[in-house]
Amino acid sequence: MKFKVLLSFLVAAALAAAASAKSITLLNVSYDPTRELYVDFNAAFAKYWKAKTGDDVTIKQSHGGSGAQARAINDGLQADVATLALAADVDALFNVGKLVPQDWQKRLPNNSAPYTSTIVFLVRKGNPKGIKDWDDLVKPGVTIVTPNPKTSGGARWNYLAAWGYALKKYGSDDKAKEFIAKLYKNVPVLDSGARGSTTTFVQREIGDVAISWENEAFLALKEYGADKFAIVVPSLSILAEPTVSVVDKVVKKKGTEEVAKAYLDYLYSDEGQEIAARNFYRPRNAAVQAKYAKVFPQLELITIDEAFGGWAKAQKTHFADGGVFDQIYLK
């Protein structure tokens, strides 16, 4: 008897909760170095959404290697939104699982990349090897730490930035390949992910320079002390565009489409841009950019679309099996 009463109470309570103030849970599946960014952003968005609609929204975060996260979503992880390191990984959500439409990247402004970053150098205190630009990396005796571009989505940007520089300076694909081969000859440790590389450089004290995302480099300075390391900005680098998308199939099933879309739109708002900038991602918004101009120095930035004809092509030429990255080791 008691049990039945309790049960009916529970059912009634559940129904009541569903009927009145909605409490929504979103899952944001992201990659490793956005953890701090989304902790800040989720709090801001929850507040904004509560004020706007009266609904409580809780955002759960999942972080891991960008490719592994995309695979998890394809394999059934119920992500409402995917905020990954490169467009290729969101493309995989279309190619493998058909979870997003083919033209997902056109749905939001700026290639669906609300914040950007670039590739810079992290060097040791006083820059003892005098590293100023990409050319200094291929000098004999300089050791470089960078993750394996085949296992780390983020590290593909590192490789492409170096390639873009060499292509511009030396003028031909063959010369660029030579340059890249020399560069990776100076890499004694190819970690499988970006955080692993940072650990190798910072804690194991291996390497004269780490090629790193700008936001990761800033985090390393913040974490381990600006007196131990310095950031060197090369003359040319690549515009790294971490892309975001609603996962259509999941939000349609869960009925969270509206809030998931609003969540991503909010990344483009003044507050969202400000939060990105505070977490060392370059904002898109001109006003916020101007405010943080001192943090993010100007440099020549190439884009993946102009210089490489998009991710699919870059992936095939450089990182597929037998691609350029494999060739430089097999020579």
Binding site: G65, V189, S192, F319, D321
Partner: peptide, 23 residues
């Protein structure tokens, strides 16, 4: 391991590498 191709890459790492490329 340092994971240098041809020198210190273990086979399970190559399996992960393939997965990372959706292969």
């Amino acid at each position: 391991a340092g994971n240098q191709p041809l020198h210190s890459e273990i086979t399970p790492l190559l399996i992960i590498t393939k997965l990372e490329q959706y292969d």
